[in-house]
Simulated assay, not measured.
Amino acid sequence: MYITITPQKMGGNYSKSSADFVSYLEKENLSFNQEDLEDGHLGIEHFFNQYDDEIAAAEVIKEIDGNTAKLEKTEPRFYSITVSPSKYELGKLQDNSIDLKKYTRELMKDYVASFNREINGRPLTIDDIKYYAKIEHQRAFKGSDIQVRENQPFATKILQLKTDIRKIENGTMEGNIKGKAKEIAKLEREAPHQQDGRRIVQGMQKEGSQGHIHIIVSRKDASNRFSLSPGSKYKASNVELNGKEIKRGFDRNSFFEKAEKTFDKTFGYHRNFAETYQARKDFIKDPKIYFAALMKLPTNEKALAFKLMGKAGVPMMPSIPVTQGQLAMKIFKGLRRGVEVAIKSSSIGI
């Protein structure tokens, strides 16, 4: 499970309107042609919230943009939450659209529960937030994906050969065009990562199930009176404001952990140690703790953990260590760098 929470910006400034972001989230619907829809393989995905389906994009923009009372220019108007289940998690779903929508509605209850806030002396409820979500089924390879990165040396050589061919054609360089074309074809075949017989490049659509969730959540509560920031640097604290003590803070750790537990409970998913938020956090902060825990797992669980890490693009050790004494710090540092890259590329996440 990979979850991000980000304030929406345009360049260095916070977006004044949600229109551009909503338009971006409509891109998949716009990519469908009539043939796709008639085949029944693809379908239009509408915005939805806790209670309503098929909400128009124009309504989303109107509601989010109209819910910004007393916010400063330096404050975000809304946040984007992106939820990307792994292929293993998606494999537990019966219907991506229906199940991811169901999960979103449970997830947003976890979101609310992670705030250390009260409204008029009572805890927040799901009815106190204003959000809209959308399911997408396509993803493209990014430059940070391991497949693109490991294919890059081949891409560089191919680009140079194509440049040489153009120079030969316009007379600024001598050479054999057919020979260079054969070199290009050879490099295309030898690139380590292929999909449908083609070298994987940035922007190529990923095959298989790629279901994920985009959520737009207003910075202000549903009454447009109170500010609710998941970007708060406070997990939980009290502060005095106008002579009155109020609670503040948002616990991201709690939210990420709840998100996993809710998914597992909802779909009967058995989460491996390597897939847990806490384990990945330990991996980055202190690999020794991570591997010490890993080595205590039952053999089957341990083997699956290493498989999951490999699939995520995390650099593996030459051999699985038998004792903690074999866990060299030099290898730890390399592993930590590797998992950080994997997390940023959305291969794995928190």
Results as ranks from 00 to 15, higher is better:
Lys258Asn: 11
Lys258His: 14
Lys258Leu: 08
Ala259Glu: 10
Ala259Lys: 02
Ala259Phe: 11
Ala259Tyr: 12
Glu260Ile: 10
Glu260Gly: 12
Glu260Asp: 13
Glu260Pro: 10
Glu260Ser: 12
Lys261Met: 08
Lys261Trp: 06
Lys261Ile: 07
Thr262Gln: 03
Phe263Trp: 08
Asp264Ala: 13
Asp264Met: 04
Asp264Cys: 14
Lys265Asp: 13
Lys265Gln: 11
Lys265Arg: 14
Lys265Val: 07
Lys265Ala: 12
Thr266Ala: 10
Thr266Met: 11
Thr266Trp: 02
Thr266Gln: 12
Thr266Arg: 05
Thr266Val: 04
Thr266Ser: 13
Phe267Ala: 09
Phe267Met: 10
Phe267Gly: 07
Phe267Asp: 09
Gly268Arg: 02
Gly268Val: 09
Gly268Met: 06
Gly268Trp: 06
Gly268Thr: 03
Gly268Tyr: 07
Gly268Ser: 06
Tyr269Pro: 09
Tyr269Ala: 12
Tyr269Glu: 10
Tyr269Cys: 12
Tyr269Phe: 15
His270Gly: 01
His270Asp: 15
His270Ser: 07
His270Arg: 13
Arg271Trp: 08
Arg271Ser: 15
Arg271Glu: 10
Arg271Thr: 15
Asn272Trp: 00
Asn272Ala: 03
Asn272Met: 02
Phe273Lys: 07
Phe273Met: 07
Ala274Asn: 02
Ala274Val: 00
Ala274Leu: 01
Ala274Met: 02
Glu275Asn: 11
Glu275Thr: 01
Glu275Gly: 10
Glu275Ile: 01
Glu275Arg: 08
Thr276His: 11
Thr276Ser: 14
Thr276Val: 06
Tyr277Phe: 13
Gln278Val: 06
Gln278Arg: 14
Gln278His: 11
Gln278Lys: 15
Gln278Phe: 03
Gln278Thr: 12
Gln278Asn: 15
Ala279Gln: 11
Ala279Trp: 03
Ala279Glu: 06
Arg280Trp: 00
Arg280Phe: 01
Arg280Asn: 12
Arg280Glu: 04
Arg280Cys: 05
Arg280Ile: 00
Lys281Met: 13
Lys281Asp: 11
Lys281His: 10
Lys281Asn: 11
Lys281Leu: 14
Lys281Ala: 13
Lys281Arg: 14
Asp282Val: 00
Asp282Leu: 14
Asp282Asn: 09
Asp282Thr: 06
Phe283Gln: 01
Phe283Thr: 01
Phe283Glu: 02
Phe283Leu: 14
Phe283Ala: 00
Phe283Pro: 00
Ile284Asn: 00
Ile284Trp: 04
Lys285Glu: 12
Lys285His: 12
Lys285Ile: 09
Asp286Val: 01
Asp286Cys: 08
Asp286Phe: 08
Asp286Arg: 10
Pro287Arg: 06
